[in-house]
Design a binder for these strands. Structure first.
Lengths: 127, 127
DNA sequence: TATAATAACAGTAACGATTATCGTTATTGT
DNA sequence: ACAATAACGATAATCGTTACTGTTATTATA
């Protein structure tokens, strides 16, 4: 079951990679509709699942829905407790966290997720 | 709108604190039904939201549902990618993460969530 | 370059965890 | 006691996501 090319998948990935706002599926859908008027939501969800499963993109659960990041390099995020948006935080990568924690653990550690919670710069000014 | 006592909330919290398996709302519900036969799911969800909002318990999104932890002391977790359960990981607390990351950030950082992904000890043996 | 196999699609129905509503009950301060 | 209201049980509604179905597009092979 190797992957076949599809114009839809390419445009979904292009759209996601060209923006830095970590959209939800719905926000992506609204934007993609302009260039792909009969894109199906099912197609979007299926491709977002494919792309995050194979590590091309990242998926974060924020509030009550998922947000996606086209930048899969190691970096960190803040979820704003006011607007529920997801932001990049600029900081040097923490190394060895997985191995540090794996030392005393009898299972396997594959990866970790470090997310900060707080108030984003925008909300911090306007509140 | 101060909080009034309720027997239901007390028993929900007692049940959650007496176990270490980080149950979902549904798993809690099944167990609580034995001592509170006409507990309503809505009541359970409402109280889990109250208790996690005020910091008494912790809430984690795992797979497609939330899991709860009655131990709100700083400690870390692993989500098993095989069984989707949530486990404690024994490790000394990382301090200063919030302040480290807040240095160059113009918003506010209140807290962080560090979750590891991998295979739990049980699944690691049986696969 | 036809053809066969099948991944992917659009459209739509279904699912399931969670939330909201509403009339009733229990707690709490006066 | 009593009044105010938080919390309850029951149930309907919400909404993000997934599954289904018949059709279309891609890709490897003849």
């Amino acid at each position: 079951m190797s992957m076949k090319y599809s114009r839809q998948r390419e445009m979904i990935l292009n759209n996601l990679c060209s923006r830095t706002d970590h959209p939800t599926a719905d926000e992506l859908y609204i934007d993609l509709k302009e260039s792909l008027p009969n894109l199906s939501l099912g197609t979007l969800y299926r491709n977002l699942a494919l792309l995050s499963d194979n590590g091309t993109i990242l998926k974060f659960h924020c509030g009550n829905s998922d947000r996606f990041d086209g930048n899969n390099n190691l970096h960190y995020h803040l979820i704003c407790e006011n607007c529920n948006r997801l932001y990049d935080i600029d900081h040097a990568p923490l190394t060895n966290l997985n191995t540090m924690f794996a030392e005393d653990y009898k299972g396997k550690i594959n990866s970790h997720l470090l997310v900060f919670y707080g108030i984003c710069e925008d909300c911090n000014c306007s509140v």
